[in-house]
Design a protein around this nucleic acid. Structure first.
Length: 452
RNA sequence: GGCGCUAUCGUCUAGAGGCCUAGGACACCAGGUUCUCAUCCUGGUAACCCCGGUUCGAAUCCGGGUAGCGUCACCA
């Protein structure tokens, strides 16, 4: 098999979002599954939208997710070498392109354009912007390797796109195709939104006289609110998910499943497993909806797979309270099964740092609770501070009074934690310490007594 | 409006003419484990867009609707 070379070719105009991440991981897997190369190419040919921070962000993100590139190219630097200028001039001299001095139209505001043949195409100008000369009455087609389908157009529906702008910079149409050819890209994998301009690219590819890479168009990720994912309405940026405490491996796994599936229904993938099992026939053809419920499950799953030591390190940036390493190491295992996102840490652990606000509604039977707590005080003030001693003593007391085990511990739980849903009670008291635990229980007795 | 793509449970999907009384995962519901919640285990509810056609037989093939999405810039 010929060498597989894929590229991830973002334009650095904003932060990397989950759609970009998905495109990148698919291109990466396609290359690596075949022992090929994954190329990062920065498409910064739009001077008006240039953002110097963008390149750094893209590199950092790819690194975070383990998508290491083999080669890096930056189009603005290649432009300086005159590569695109030369290609454009060759197309003109071959009769496949022409110069144009029409003012740039802004159909974005007008709606849509219906003029497909440019008035400058036969004027024989010798300078200006360069536009593609589109032939009439021809069929142009390609096989899409994602859709696994031949798609074709009548050239009479193709407009004469600008290839080189009057500022000397190439448009995507010229730059991307020129580079794909020069860089020996074997597979172009890109967003669905590029599909309509594919006939333009096919023409450019053919006129440049080389060969056509395989081309495949990925689905778009849709918003659960309807329509395309929106940067305003939806949370879409990788950075934002990371800041919420989503693990990179969870986000990556989630995004892999959004548009690709293996025949055997496997759901859990590390990057390495995905690369190994990758198969282009698994690509989805219909647009998926973004919904974070499965992402939440995946994140919880990956959190539970961490060792306590690993999790303690991961959770540190999300700890809001002032805490020693020792205490953090005691608390973290107690809430491991309860964490959905790392940022849940502060709300799940508040009870370890400050006494609870008591609410009488949390106690089922205040009078009985006083009895429960009184017994607890008696035992706990004299008990050795170990799990076994605490529990056996308490159980003996419960049994002698004929109480329901669940009722007793709920009273104690609410007194100590201020909530009916908490980490394991004994372990929690162990962390709090004997003195603090007893203080909280006595406070609760007083609180309940005053209600009386 | 033109051009193009798509259409299986609420969501992500398996399904390439009989293996489908349509399978898995998440979510949801019920039960079990457990001193609560969570985890974990077991079970359940739930889908082939519509209409024609081809065929002995269609979720799977074809045609037509309908709907969704994309795009129509000297932006990518």
């Amino acid at each position: 098999m010929a060498l597989i070379r894929t590229r991830f070719a973002p334009s650095p105009t904003g932060q990397m979002h989950i759609g970009n991440l998905r495109t990148a991981v698919y291109a990466y897997a396609l290359a690596k599954h075949n022992s090929g190369q994954f190329i990062l190419r920065i498409e910064d040919t739009d001077q008006k939208r240039y953002d110097p921070q963008g390149i750094t962000d893209i590199k950092n993100n790819l690194t975070t997710f383990g998508l290491n590139w083999d080669e890096l190219y930056i189009q603005s630097e290649r432009k300086k070498a005159g590569i695109y200028q030369q290609t454009a001039e060759k197309l003109v001299s071959d009769g496949h392109a022409f110069y144009c001095r029409c003012p740039a139209k802004n159909v974005k505001q007008a709606g849509y354009s219906t003029i497909l043949r440019d008035p400058c195409r036969d004027r024989g100008l010798t300078s200006g912007a360069v536009k593609l000369r589109v032939p009439d009455n021809q069929q142009i087609s390609y096989h899409d390797f994602v859709l696994d389908k031949v798609v074709s157009w009548d050239t009479n529906t193709v407009y004469e796109a600008t290839l080189l702008k009057s500022d000397g910079f190439p448009t995507y149409h010229l730059a991307a195709m020129t580079d794909d050819l020069l860089m020996q890209i074997s597979h172009i994998l890109r967003g669905h939104d590029w599909m309509p301009s594919t006939p333009i690219h096919l023409l450019v590819l053919d006129y440049l006289g080389n060969r056509r890479p395989e081309i495949g168009h990925l689905t778009d990720i849709l918003s659960s609110k309807g329509g395309k994912l929106s940067k305003r309405r939806d949370s879409v940026f990788c950075e934002a998910f990371l800041e919420l405490g989503y693990l990179p491996e969870a986000l990556l796994n989630f995004v892999i499943l959004l548009g690709w599936a293996p025949k055997d229904n496997q759901e859990l993938f590390t990057l390495e497993e995905f690369v190994r099992k990758f198969d282009p026939s698994g690509f989805q053809k219909a647009n998926p909806l973004f919904s974070d419920t499965k992402l939440n499950w995946l994140n919880g799953y990956y959190i539970r797979q961490k060792t306590d030591t690993q999790l303690i390190q991961l959770v540190k940036p999300f700890v809001k309270q002032d805490v020693t390493d020792t205490k953090l190491a005691q608390i973290t295992p107690l809430i491991k099964d309860r964490l959905v996102k790392l940022s849940d840490f502060p709300s799940l652990t508040g009870l370890f740092f400050s006494p609870p606000d008591l609410d009488k509604n949390l106690f089922d039977q205040p009078d009985l609770a006083i009895e429960h707590l009184t017994l607890a005080t008696e035992h706990l003030s004299s008990s050795p501070w170990t799990k076994e001693a605490i529990e056996t003593g308490l159980m003996a007391g419960i049994k002698s009074h004929g109480w329901k085990v669940g009722d007793f511990f709920m009273s104690l739980r609410v007194a100590v934690c201020g909530s009916r849903a908490t980490p394991p009670l004994t372990e929690t008291m162990l962390v709090l310490g004997q003195s603090e635990s007893l203080t909280r229980i006595r406070n609760a007795i007083n609180f309940l007594g005053q209600l009386g």
